[in-house]
Amino acid sequence: GDALLPAPQSISILSTNMKHFLTWSPVIIQGATVRYSVEFQGEYEREYANGSWIPISECSLTTATLCNVTQDISASVPYRLRVRAELGSARSPWGTTEGFFTRAMTSLTPPQLRVLADGHHLLVELADMGPSFQFHVLYWKKGQESRVQQKVTREVSSVVHLDTMEAGAEYCVKAQAHVEAINRSSSFSPTQCVRAQGDTSLWL
C-alpha cells in the first residue's frame, strides 16, 4: 500500500509579485499516473485549531506538480504547505515545505510602464500586476532632479494623467510597485523621458 509510494521531494514555493506557487518533483511509478493533493496550514491553524491542515480543492488529485496557492496564502503570517502522492487507494507520506513561508518573502519586480507626451501633458500607462498592487510614480523636469514629484495610483491598463509640462521641456518618469499588505516596494523601473510639445506649434 502506502509504503510503495514515496513522498514527493524537492518541495518549494516560487513567489513573485504576490503570486505564490508550490512545486515539487514528480513521483515516478512506471506505467502509472500518479496524482497529488496539497494542503496548507497558517499560524492560526497551528496555534488555535490543533495544528489542522486545510485542503486546496483545485490541487486535490491533480497530475500537475505545481499548485497555485495565492488565494490561500492571504494573510501576513507564516504558512506551511504539504503535498502527498496518491495512486488508486495508495497514499504516500506527506512531504512538507522546509520552514515557513510568509508572503512578505515574495520577490517584487519593477512595474512595466509606457510614458507618453500628448501636447503639454505628461501621461503614463502601467501594466497590471494584480489586486495587491499600487504604484508610486516619480516624475521631474530634466535638469531639476531635486524637484521630483510623486503620484500614487492603482489605475492600470489605462492612460493616467500625471501633470502638465512646460512647452518644449523634457520630463522623466520612473515607477515602483508597492504592496500595502506587506509594506514592501519593488525597485524602480528604468527612467523614461519625453519632451513636451514646443510653443512654436500650430496652435499659435
Partner: peptide, 9 residues
C-alpha cells in the same frame, strides 16, 4: 478628435 482618453484619480 484623437480619440485619446486620459484618466485622473
Amino acid at each position: 478628435k484623437t480619440k485619446k482618453r486620459w484618466f485622473f484619480s
